[in-house]
């Protein structure tokens, strides 16, 4: 059972790793990153590593995408402000 699940999950991870680096749009990529993090966490559960799985869920699937989103938001925000300042009002 573990073998079937493990082989399948690893194949899925291998495919999504390639998909993740081939995604050029950064916002889409953040979503994909979250999914990829969840897949990894699932794999940790399957291979009897609950501690790491918990850490991976909290970090890989939540904290990392959150940080990326915050960074993107901040950059967009700065861009909007820059545009607003340029407009003659």
């Amino acid at each position: 059972m573990t073998a079937v699940l493990g082989v399948g999950l690893l194949a899925l991870i291998a495919v999504s790793a390639l998909a993740l680096v081939r995604t050029d749009d950064v916002t889409c990529q953040t979503m994909a990153l979250s999914f990829y993090g969840l897949l990894l966490a699932l794999m940790f559960f399957v291979f009897r590593a609950p501690d790491v799985a918990l850490a991976q869920i909290t970090v890989g699937a939540i904290a990392l995408p959150l940080m990326v989103m915050l960074a993107i938001t901040r950059m967009k925000h700065r861009e909007a402000r820059r545009r607003k300042e340029k407009e003659p009002s």
Partner: peptide, 8 residues
Amino acid sequence: HLVHMVIS
């Protein structure tokens, strides 16, 4: 894109 690079 630099963010893309970080994710990679």
